[in-house]
Design a protein around this nucleic acid. Structure first.
Lengths: 148, 148
DNA sequence: GGGCCAACGTTGGTTCGGCCAACAATACAG
DNA sequence: CTGTATTGTTGGCCGAACCAACGTTGGCCC
């Protein structure tokens, strides 16, 4: 009766987050930091707003996250000469190094999280969750072309 | 590369929580309130500490939750004559009525959450998540008999 | 060119869930 | 009787996820 999907999902997410946070803590990093670094590597340099859209991090939280990472020289923040409203955030070499380390830690965390599931079930889980996540991701059917 | 299970689980949980919170908001209730009412109906009257163990709510948060619900006459808090450390929390008739309403709202939320999945996939999802949740639930293999 | 609206970064807040530490009162085991 | 554990309670912390507002800047339309 109380094995509701929303509850189960939440419980699983809680466990996952606990494991991931613990792994990241070894590198003095929080999830936001990783999300930003990963987005930078994946998409290349971008404005804070664009990064926020891609990571789901709020503009205001993005400020603090960039501050943190810039303070550790893992990213650089520079004004965009073509649009003086924007800051262009770029990952540094040190940032890439750190990201690689985080990727390793994160991979280990995934394994710990999925421990009770054999490979076939893991795939199915990812498939199901992907469908859910995509369905609830963008309530706005057609997304604007995301210029850039 | 970034379709990590932990991320997907988190995204799904986020969507689920958003939907559930929105549903509960219609009844001026938060998740903790529902969790407590549901636990009371399922297990019967119990001490705050016991309820906390069953719902996963911290003792300190339980105080506030019981305060809220007692203030709305949905539960009653009475000292346990057999153990004066304890408060026995009991659901009221009004509490049951409210719980039934919340159950309806919650069922609707589940449906909205699982919308993209056909019934067979929903079952598989629940199965997979249950295994994950149970595996990460109680690292302490054997639980004490939970007297009561 | 002038005016208007949108986007950007930033500051400063709020809320909620999930914790932890400490304390007094009480229970219980030795 | 003495110490240890449990209980309720207070008061705090942190991270994630938000929102409102403001000044700056761009782009657009007339």
């Amino acid at each position: 009766m109380r094995a509701l999907p929303s509850r189960l999902t939440n419980a699983a997410a809680l466990a996952a987050n606990r494991i991931v946070d613990q792994a990241f803590a070894q590198a003095q990093v929080r999830r936001y930091h990783y999300a930003l670094l990963a987005a930078l590597e994946e998409y290349g340099p971008a404005s804070q707003a664009a990064l926020g859209r891609r990571t789901g991090i709020d503009r205001s939280d993005m400020v603090a996250t960039v501050n943190d990472l810039a303070g550790r020289a893992l990213v650089e923040r520079a004004p965009d000469p073509d649009d003086r409203r924007r800051n262009i955030v770029t990952i540094t070499a040190e940032g890439r190094r750190r990201l690689a380390e985080l990727d390793r830690l994160l991979a280990g965390a995934q394994d710990e999280f999925l421990a009770p599931l054999p490979p076939a079930d893991r795939e199915r889980l990812v498939d199901l969750l992907t469908r859910l996540a995509e369905h609830h991701a963008a309530p706005s059917g057609g997304r604007p072309p995301e210029p850039g």
